[in-house]
């Protein structure tokens, strides 16, 4: 009997704490699967960004190489073909 009362009291106390707890609004999907997909997408996003940066860097290097050779300037005396 003593044990049952003790269990009941502790149950009530825990329930009281739960009731008094502030409800926190989920600002991020709570399901583990959704979370996994989001983190995976973030990693892929960064791979995409790094890839784009590498492509732009390569393009920039090529432009700088052409500029250093001086062949990017338009020749004014070039004959035009109609």
């Amino acid at each position: 009997m003593k044990r049952i009362i003790l269990v009941l009291v502790s149950l009530l106390m825990n329930a009281g704490i739960l009731l008094a707890q502030e409800t926190k609004i989920d600002v991020f999907p709570a399901a583990p699967y959704d979370r996994f997909i989001i983190y995976q997408t973030l990693a892929i996003f960064w791979v995409g960004i790094i890839g784009l940066i590498i492509i732009i860097r390569m393009k920039l290097k090529e432009i700088e190489r052409i500029q250093s050779l001086g062949i990017d300037k338009e020749d004014k005396d070039t004959p035009l073909l109609d």
Partner: peptide, 25 residues
């Protein structure tokens, strides 16, 4: 082109913060 590179990095940082640290309500 250099601007584009920096903007991409900033976009990446912003998206990372937005994902890992969403503002509380």
């Amino acid at each position: 082109y250099k601007d584009l590179i920096i903007w991409l990095i900033v976009l990446g940082i912003m998206v990372t913060f937005a994902t890992l640290l969403p503002p509380e309500i």
